[in-house]
Design a protein around this nucleic acid. Structure first.
Lengths: 196, 196
DNA sequence: TCATTAAAGGTACTGTGGTGCCGTTAACGT
DNA sequence: ACGTTAACGGCACCACAGTACCTTTAATGA
């Protein structure tokens, strides 16, 4: 009978490979993600990487699965604008951090190139957005935003300008994060994100 | 003495190659953009494509240069929200169009993978944003938004949620375009985009 | 019209990313 | 403790993307 063996060695190999993958992505970007190179860095057989993952995008997809498991801490200041600002600054900090920033850029590159990585990225952001949605829901409960406000939409509205700027201009400045938070807060209060 | 020869044949070759490049990007995506394949489709020597462009990203960069030259018509209804809505719907239509949508996705993929293509994409969006900025400037002149409002920032705020949705969920619905336009209009009127 | 020479086209070759094969290792059930 | 077998590791191989080299075409200037 067929037996799954996720223990010991396999788990160690996966951890080593994912760590090496993250290193390459952060240092050289998705375009230079070579399976043979990853195998070398991970100190793992080249054949193993080709057999278990097969393509660079599959590697990234698995890495995203791993990244989604590590949750980010959420604030709860009792003020919508303040919470959104904290979220915007967290995203901004992540995207401009030397390692994390490059890593995210690379992961995004993979997702725009391949459907499998894209699906993994969708899952990643779904969990991240869900983690922060409660602070909007609480704002609604406090009467800061109208009932029926789509909490997920508000959280997404905070990140959107930051990612869009990165794509279309390549840079991010600190003021942009606060501006994004303010815009989302103002629009949310005005009822723009009330579900139809 | 060295002479440039941009006439006749070279121009025809470039046009054929860029058309073939667009076809491949729209049909199969950036990951499948192969120079030999492009040469075959363009009915052009394989060597020529390798010599003149060399890499897939260089091909995309040149295509973007070509795309930036074709300008998109801007509305001028005399109402900020109406103009922004028109812009949002134009972007939405472009991104969901079978050919244009796939093409943009692929071009974005190239830009996230490579610096050269990224620079070309920045140029492309800079011209597109500049084309639409006047409708915000006029809204400021009419008193619809406070003086000092950054017109480019407002236009970018309209597109941002659409691109962000595409990246993080993979889908776009029509209501989102109107929502994006409303959010940008509300925030602009509230003075969120006034330069410091 | 004709000489000049960029730039395109054809072909043969090569370096390497990716695969197939098979021996080795170490998880898991009893 | 021990046998079974899933999964890893090493090596040889091969297809093909990318290059080198040379020939041909046609754009330019006088």
């Amino acid at each position: 009978m067929t037996q799954a063996r996720p223990g010991g060695r396999s788990a160690r190999v996966r951890a080593q490979v994912l760590r090496a993958t993250g290193d390459v992505l952060a240092e050289q970007g998705f375009a230079h993600l070579d399976l043979a190179d990853v195998a070398r860095r991970a100190d793992v057989g080249k054949t193993t990487v080709y057999r278990r993952w097969g393509t660079p995008t599959a590697l990234v997809a698995d890495l995203l699965l791993d990244m989604a498991e590590q949750s980010s801490p959420r604030t709860d200041t009792g003020d919508l604008l303040e919470d959104l600002r904290a979220n915007a600054r967290l995203v901004h900090r992540t995207l401009t951090d030397p390692r994390q920033g490059s890593l995210f850029q690379s992961v995004i590159a993979a997702a725009t190139c391949d459907g499998q990585a894209a699906t993994a990225l969708h899952g990643f952001y779904a969990t991240r957005v869900a983690e922060w949605a409660p602070c909007v829901e609480q704002a609604v409960a406090r009467g800061e935003a109208p009932p029926g406000t789509d909490a997920h939409a508000v959280i997404r509205a905070v990140s959107a300008p930051l990612y869009y700027h990165l794509l279309t201009t390549g840079g991010l400045d600190g003021a942009l994060a606060d501006q994004a938070a303010e815009a989302a807060a103002v629009a949310a209060r005005a009822g723009v994100y009330v579900r139809p």
